[in-house]
Design a protein around this nucleic acid. Structure first.
Length: 311
DNA sequence: TTCCGGGGAG
DNA sequence: CTCCCTGGAA
């Protein structure tokens, strides 16, 4: 049952197919019992609901996404509903999720879906990848979680699980082989395969954490990584992440927040109060927000949410 | 490679 | 304080 701990495969570069199906089944059984009750996993959720959840979850924790997703889906239950809305409304509803360009891309994606796909989220990889804001991860996640396809889904969590459980090594930078590795791991049956994709993510989030993983409750313990002594990942050499406090990003966030909370466009003098720390930085932030199409200056020299031309 | 938010855990 | 989180695009 715990074939990843089986001695007969130790030393091989890759586990054989038999081991795969066994550990995969164990993982799916674990998922059946322990999967978190997330709203976008409910059976009645549409592919649109899944797409919205995946975009919101990019670099954003589950518990922060949950309430915003609920509001979006209630308000815009299908792509055409969002497509008919001005971007400003989508930005307001985005709230403090962060990376507001995601809201703009999702809004544009809704319009592309209406225009080119008859209002339905496409179920083909190339068509999904062509949507704004949809990359290699999100496209395959939609195929797996919205359409139940056998689709390799590799985010940072799955990558870590693959490195540890599959290769018996520490996590490391993304490799070209990650996607083929993930695909090889999936069983042929689409239902089991898509479930395993979700289970791998769940395991990485809840159990196989970057630091201090909870191996005691892991359904495939001991895995190769555990037997290898749980080697630690190398610290990403290079310089540390820039501070957020006082950054241009924080300035953008403050300006956008002021506009979200105002029913009407704001004069520049009013916006000054949104970021008093550094006027030059404030102007830089405003310019970059305009450049991103998230705000514009209207005919009365006031700053407003959304792009200059609405529809 | 770098930029892009924001919150929360440690 | 630092680090991490279901990435995407230029």
């Amino acid at each position: 049952m715990r074939l990843l701990g089986n001695d007969k495969i130790s030393g091989e570069a890759h586990p054989d197919e038999h081991e795969f199906s066994e550990s995969g089944r164990a993982l799916n059984r674990w998922f059946d019992e322990h999967a978190r009750d997330l709203p976008w996993r409910a059976p009645e959720v549409t592919p649109w609901g899944v797409l919205v959840s995946e975009v919101m979850l990019q670099q954003t924790q589950v518990e922060r996404v949950r309430p915003v997703w609920e509001e979006w889906i209630h308000r815009w239950p299908d792509p055409s509903a969002l497509a008919e809305e001005p971007l400003a409304e989508a930005l307001r509803a985005w709230g403090r999720l962060g990376y507001p360009r995601r809201a703009a891309r999702l809004h544009e994606a809704a319009r592309v879906i209406v225009r080119e796909h008859d209002g339905r989220v496409p179920d083909r990889l190339d068509a999904l990848l062509a949507l704004p804001g949809v990359g290699a991860y999100t496209a395959r996640a939609v195929l797996a979680f919205a359409f139940g396809q056998r689709s390799p889904v590799v985010d940072v969590n799955v990558r870590r699980v693959l490195r540890r459980v599959w290769h018996g090594e520490a996590d490391g930078p993304a490799r070209a082989a990650d996607l083929p590795d993930a695909l090889a791991l999936l069983p042929e049956d689409p239902d089991e395969a898509s479930k395993l994709s979700a289970a791998l993510m769940e395991l990485g989030q809840v159990v196989c954490a970057p630091e201090s993983p909870n191996c005691d409750i892991c359904p495939i313990n001991p895995c190769r990584w555990a037997r290898a002594g749980k080697p630690a990942a190398q610290a990403p050499a290079g310089r540390r992440a820039p501070r957020y406090a006082g950054s241009d990003r924080q300035a953008r966030g403050a300006i956008l927040a002021a506009l979200r909370e105002s029913a009407d466009p704001l004069r520049k003098a009013a916006l000054d109060q949104a970021w008093l720390i550094n006027p030059a930085q404030r102007e830089r932030a405003i310019a970059s927000l305009i450049d991103d199409g998230l705000i514009h200056v209207d005919g009365e020299e006031r700053v407003a949410l959304g792009p200059a031309e609405q529809r």
